[in-house]
């Protein structure tokens, strides 16, 4: 870890004031401190925002709002989350470990960095960490890497489970920066790596995430998050699926489907949603609908199983919702 200066902010205003070139906000610290210890990132100035009151889990006519500083554990266990949006609670409960969920915040979760082992090891080339140095994963150990949205410069997955469920629910981010407030669809927040994998999202320097808004979607009560991983107790996803269905009279009216562990960003699958629409809620429908889910995949030397796993993970989620 390199030396840095430290300040604690008590309000959004103080936080924004403290922000400067090369500074980083400290929320739960479970990503930030980890990466600082690995010297993957070395901010010159750290602004502690744990006392900034970006709290609250509220439900209104328009939907659910969650403060950026709410802890993963508190959100997962909240009645306003678990009842109306099971996929959100399930995604959180299958994230990390209880200890980490007690520390980690919603804002930090959405900004966590990829778990690509080359990104995390400064001794190896990585375009995301050190632009232009090359991508070690393309010819390296890439079993856990993405097959969708990749580029020659980067094949790293986005690791957040929560983001997958939020994308499926059309969530929006509230942001506050020196230039004022703005709101953005989470789906528009994350960028594809292209030739600039170090630019992961639309966050401007010094900007704060203040909260997340999830639109009301009554039929999301019938939703689930299925996560397939090597180690069941805690591990990042080999593949995951957030699925919600609106079924009436045995027929799917509408569906939401997004996937994790396969894309360079949380991956919404509108074609699968479309293919489910108007079809009977049964296995044949599911299997037909996922047939093209992984179309466009670019396979690496060790992750050729991912397209099949993606299709089956979605089917598993749908079977679960049917059962």
């Amino acid at each position: 870890m390199r030396p840095y200066t430290f300040a604690a902010a008590r309000s959004v205003g103080e936080a924004l004031e403290q922000a400067r070139d090369g500074s980083a906000y400290l929320a739960g610290g479970t990503t930030l401190v980890d990466l600082m210890k690995l010297e993957v990132i070395s901010p010159a100035h750290v602004v502690d925002i744990t006392a900034v009151p970006l709290r609250g889990i509220r439900a209104g006519a328009k939907g659910l709002s969650i403060g950026a500083m709410e802890r993963m554990a508190d959100v997962a266990g909240h009645d306003l989350v678990a009842g109306p949006y099971p996929m959100l609670a399930e995604a959180l409960r299958q994230s990390a470990s209880p200890q980490i969920r007690n520390m980690a915040t919603i804002g930090g979760n959405l900004l966590q960095r990829t778990r690509c082992g080359y990104f995390r090891d400064p001794a190896t080339p990585c375009n995301k960490r050190s632009p232009g140095s090359g991508c070690s994963a393309v010819d390296g150990h890439n079993r856990s890497h993405a097959v969708l949205g990749t580029s020659d410069a980067c094949v790293a997955t986005h690791p957040s489970d929560l983001a997958v469920a939020l994308i499926a629910l059309d969530a929006r981010l509230s942001l506050r920066g020196a230039g004022g407030e703005r709101s953005l669809r989470l789906a528009d927040f994350y960028r594809l790596p292209g030739s600039t994998p170090h630019q992961e999202n639309e966050l401007r320097p010094g900007e704060l995430i203040t909260g997340v808004a999830v639109p009301a979607l009554p039929w999301a009560r019938r939703s689930t998050y299925v996560k397939v991983r090597d180690r069941q107790s805690y591990d990042f996803a080999l593949c995951s699926a957030a699925v919600a269905v609106n079924v009436r009279g045995g027929v799917i009216g509408e569906a939401r489907v997004a996937a994790g562990g396969v894309g360079t960003r949380p991956w919404r699958l509108p074609a699968v949603e479309q293919a489910l629409k108007g079809k009977p809620m049964r296995l044949e429908t599911f299997q037909a609908a996922v047939e093209h889910a992984a179309d466009g995949s670019r396979l690496l030397s060790r992750n050729a199983f991912k397209p099949a796993l993606l299709r089956r993970t979605i089917v598993r989620a749908l079977v679960h919702l049917a059962g």
Binding site: R115, G117, A123, T124, D139, G140, H141, D230, R231, Q232, S233, Y234, D235
Partner: peptide, 22 residues
């Protein structure tokens, strides 16, 4: 890694061990 001799999961996040929940 055959090409470098580097162990790509030389840490407890990537080298998976069972915990009680497993």
């Amino acid at each position: 890694e055959g090409a470098t001799g580097r162990i790509s999961n030389a840490n407890l996040a990537d080298y998976l061990l069972p915990v009680n929940a497993d």
